[in-house]
Design a protein around this nucleic acid. Sequence first.
DNA 1: TCTACTCGGACAAGATGTGTCCGAGTCAAG
DNA 2: CTTGACTCGGACACATCTTGTCCGAGTAGA
Lengths: 155, 155
Amino acid sequence: MKMSGGVEWALHCTVVLSAAERPVPAGRLAELHDVSASYLAKQLQALSRAEIIRSVQGHAGGYELARPAARITVLDVVEAVDGPQPAFLCTEIRQRGPLATPAEACEKPCAISRAMSAADQAWRAALRAVTIADLAAQVVEDYDGDVFAGVRAWL
Amino acid sequence: MKMSGGVEWALHCTVVLSAAERPVPAGRLAELHDVSASYLAKQLQALSRAEIIRSVQGHAGGYELARPAARITVLDVVEAVDGPQPAFLCTEIRQRGPLATPAEACEKPCAISRAMSAADQAWRAALRAVTIADLAAQVVEDYDGDVFAGVRAWL
DNA sequence: TCTACTCGGACAAGATGTGTCCGAGTCAAG
DNA sequence: CTTGACTCGGACACATCTTGTCCGAGTAGA
């Protein structure tokens, strides 16, 4: 049960992009966080494919948010980078073995699958309740505001 | 974000063990579910190490629950097999790069880490709320009760 | 027209999960 | 009491996925 480490990078980058008004190249974001530029590019491509960020080609290009930060949830980013499928996949082992349950009696998921799905729903709901704008606001609250000004100046 | 597939096997085995009053060998459980006996043994060992099930050595040995099914939560089994660590690990990338936050200002986790931890707590709470006894009761409710009698007879 | 910069997808390496095996210990039967 | 067979437990390869890297196609500006 381990989430892709790239999720952390993607979330930080999304928060940074919410504070920048010009497109930011992937290389600049990698330098800012001191991580591998080549690998960060992969995560940004995933975000681009999910239409969370938009790529601007050419000389002064880079990445920018595709919609307001208040409309991007943490769940959006997690699903874009880590995949949308739930952590638990029921393989229907109740239909195997000498005492296999007949397929006709398996219309609804088994109790185990239901419990895991409920937990997954709770997890997703918690991530859906937080937006990138919320994260940015919390950062401002934690560090007295001028951090994003410094980031903007550095970019 | 993928959980170990052995979790499903472990949960099914725990529910079956809650219905059996005699120790059940690992090989019998594997045959019942039509899965690899060698690999299932590994999961059962993990459950044994976590003191969820207890091993009985010798001729008529096997595995049995270490405590009543009502006192074993789904979270216990998941953590025993899949590991107790949360899916998201904060690597403190805010302390890296040219605009690194000084370590003295990082007493409490960053906003991103807090959001992920909250979701993790919600997930764990949902799994902690369901016990193996609950699962067994739901199975009885779904299939009109005599399934466990069949299992007991087959063991 | 040209150049330099950008993203995008295709290509290896390491780590983790998966699957298997054989040996040590133990209880039951004779 | 001896024997025997059955049990678990940990150590050993294999497969898959995540991680990490590279170079080529396309585009905006000079």
